[in-house]
Design a protein around this nucleic acid. Structure first.
Length: 634
RNA sequence: GCUGGCUUAGCUCAAUCUGGCAGAGCAGCUGACUUGUAAUCAGCAGGUUGCGGGUUCAAUUCCCAUAGCCAGCUCCA
């Protein structure tokens, strides 16, 4: 019998029982390796699946995110086969694809190290070259369980025990049989480019009470060019590491005396203050007022807020006059005390109160990571107190502000995620429903695409998260809006409505940069330390050619400093070439060269430190040039 | 917190495996050079080898403990 298969709107006729792979071979033979699976509605179909009816499908290609995930997942099976060939006593746990590759967890008496990678990669290449098929087989749960138990594969057996289905699918590649949902590539030769990247310990099921397994990471791409580009990106990321650049530029430091507590050096302080100045200005422009609340507050407050019950493992405590106090991990309870100090009218709402709040959170020692994960940081926090009816509109305004601010910092690619009620939470079901609905509606009203993260909300409310993409394509979570009906209830907050009666306000928590410290880390990596003019710690360095030019250089410096520009002079007795090199290493924004000709004609020759082009300007023109630079970036 | 690795001059790294006087480059200081677009030359100084124990005639090196850092797990702004 002939079947009609509609692929991407084009019709093909093939015999019943043949597969999509046969179809490709017959009609589009030069597509080999580019097409990796097909999608029918939400369902992914393997190319080798026999077809028994007319269908309408779309190709899944290796350059799509679904396609690359299949490719990587299959590569993880190939790695597991290679590892089992080389180290036969090894047990396998799980081996999924990840955002940038794949891994497989192994339980082995052999301690693997990176020197083993060459061996494993060679074995994998052998497997790929021998073009072994991936063969899917459905078996009963009991049969699969018996098989893996016989082989002592305790991890696989444990997973099967928890699967809620009559049958499970097994995939055979060579002599390796794995429990797996699929889909997979038709055969191993589809893998064109792969590499093992690192090895690390990982707990079975991510639980530190369980045995630690050995996780081998790798990655695979549709072709070697993409793999190479990825590896180059990793190198580039290393070059941009904010910990390295921070040290080189004298921005910040961490010392043994305070693990996780950043110290800001003078150049870093310029960045920090530049951001804060900008932040204050734009918040004023958007109708926010500002407060500051204490860092240490009485234990009682934290019981009322729910932090004691839900967050105490991350909090620092202290005693004052025999009473127990906690160091704030969040700013909201303090802000609420200010709100509750007095009566509020509905006419004041929405009330937008911002706070650059210094918070302390006791993060586990192993998670600290430069400025990205610290124990003390400043949230660019704000709390918006409003009526239920105002929530949606206020959320929309925050979203607009978030986008404006990111774009001012040079981030134009933003994506949004919505996180819903976690298992550990406070507040009633109705509150949660209403809160989640308000956030959803705001996003839908603005026609913004978003992804849902189930159970990932804060303990007091659901949240919208904002992620920005940096110069080398990495994504960072920064901003957040959290919709909170619970705190107002707990703290018995109220406003007087038009009806003269007390009503409960809704509280929106929001941060845009997230943490100033972390945001600076992201900026460093985004700009690779070459900050735009308004943020650059050293905006201009004057390089006098000889000692005779120092006096004129100083007068130029003073002139520019009066306008508020950050100017230094290289007074060393080096040659010009050496001074230029040093200025570039220090990532100075612009350099000015002053020699006889400039001194005699009262001019300055400037150039951006990383460019070749020179401009010779009058001092007034230089000031205008700098003012332009400032305006262009903000 | 867990697993593994690392910690040597201000910085980047040798010497550690196989125990035997701890060594470079850059930065610093001094002097000379007065310089026109990515490193001028010479000299000087710089160290209880993260901290604490142990083994040894002898420990930067081996062992134990501890702190910090790095990678990953988990968590997260």
């Amino acid at each position: 019998m002939q079947l009609t298969i509609n692929v991407n709107g084009k019709e093909y006729s093939i015999e019943s029982g043949k597969s999509l792979l046969d179809l490709i071979k017959q009609y589009i033979p030069n597509a080999k390796y580019g097409i990796i699976a097909a999608r029918e509605g939400d369902k992914l179909i393997e190319l080798t699946t026999p077809i028994g009816e007319n269908k309408s499908v779309e190709w899944v290609k290796t350059d799509s995110s679904e396609g690359i995930a299949i490719l990587r997942h299959s590569t993880s099976h190939i790695m597991a086969l290679a590892v089992k060939r080389l180290f036969p006593k090894t047990l396998v746990a799980i081996g999924p694809s990840t955002d940038d590759g794949f891994y497989y967890d192994f339980d082995s008496e052999t301690r693997f190290n990176e020197e083993d990678f060459t061996k494993i990669e060679a074995e994998m290449q052998k497997i790929i070259d021998s073009d072994l098929p991936f063969v899917r087989k459905e078996v009963s749960k009991a049969e699969a369980l018996a098989k893996f138990k016989d082989e002592g594969e305790i991890y696989k057996a444990e997973i099967i025990g928890e699967i809620d289905a009559e049958t499970v699918s097994l995939y055979t590649t060579g002599e390796f049989v794995d429990l797996c949902r699929g889909p997979h590539i038709p055969s191993t030769s589809y893998i064109r480019a792969f590499k093992l990247t690192k090895i690390a310990g990982a707990y079975w099921r991510g639980d530190e009470k369980n045995k630690m397994l050995q996780r081998i990471y790798g990655t695979a791409f549709a072709d070697s060019k993409s793999l190479k580009a990825y590896l180059t990106m990793l190198e580039e990321a290393k070059e941009r590491d904010h910990r390295k650049i921070g040290k080189e530029m004298g921005l910040f430091g961490f010392y043994q005396e305070g693990p996780g507590f950043p110290f800001w050096k003078p150049n870093g302080m310029v960045l920090y203050n530049g951001i804060v100045d900008y932040w204050r200005r734009i918040h004023r422009q958007n109708g926010y007022i500002e407060v500051k609340t204490p860092i240490i507050l009485n234990e009682d407050l934290w019981h009322r807020s729910g932090h004691w019950a839900n967050y105490s493992e991350n909090m620092y405590f202290t005693k004052i006059d025999g009473d127990s106090y906690a160091v704030k991990p969040m700013n909201c309870p303090g802000g609420i005390l200010i709100y509750n100090d007095g009566i509020h009218s509905y006419k004041e709402l929405p009330l937008k109160i911002a706070e650059l709040g210094l918070v302390h959170r006791h993060e586990k020692s192993g998670v600290l990571h430069g400025l990205f994960r610290v124990r003390q940081f400043t949230q660019d926090d704000a709390h918006i107190y409003c009526t239920k009816e105002q929530v949606k509109g206020e959320v929309e305004k925050v979203i607009a502000l978030v986008q404006k601010i990111y774009s001012d910092f040079g981030f134009d690619d933003v994506h949004i995620e919505l996180s819903t009620r976690p298992d550990k939470s406070i507040g009633s079901d109705e509150m949660w429903e209403l809160a989640e609905k308000s956030l959803k509606e705001a996003l839908e009203e603005l026609k913004i695409e978003y992804k849902v993260n189930p159970k990932d909300g804060a303990f007091y409310g659901p949240k919208i998260d904002f992620h920005i993409k940096d110069a080398i394509g990495r994504s960072w979570q920064c901003g957040t809006i959290q919709c909170d009906f619970a705190m107002p209830e707990r703290f018995d907050m109220s406003y007087i409505g038009a009806d003269g009666k007390k009503h409960r306000p809704v509280m929106l928590h929001r941060a845009i940069l997230g943490s100033i410290e972390r945001f600076i880390g992201i900026l460093i990596e985004h700009y690779k330390g070459k900050f735009p003019f308004w943020l650059a710690p050293e905006q201009l360095r004057i390089l006098p050619i000889a000692a005779a030019h120092l006096e004129y250089a100083n007068s130029v410096k003073n002139f520019l400093q009066n306008f508020g520009f950050r100017v230094t002079i290289d007074e060393s007795s080096e040659k010009l070439g050496a001074k230029i090199k040093q200025a570039r290493l220090d990532r100075v924004h612009t350099i000015a060269i002053i020699g006889d000709s400039e001194m005699n004609s009262k001019l300055v020759t400037v150039r951006k430190a990383d460019m070749e082009e020179n401009r010779t300007l009058k001092l007034d023109e230089l000031v205008d040039f700098f003012i332009d630079l400032n305006n262009n970036t903000k």
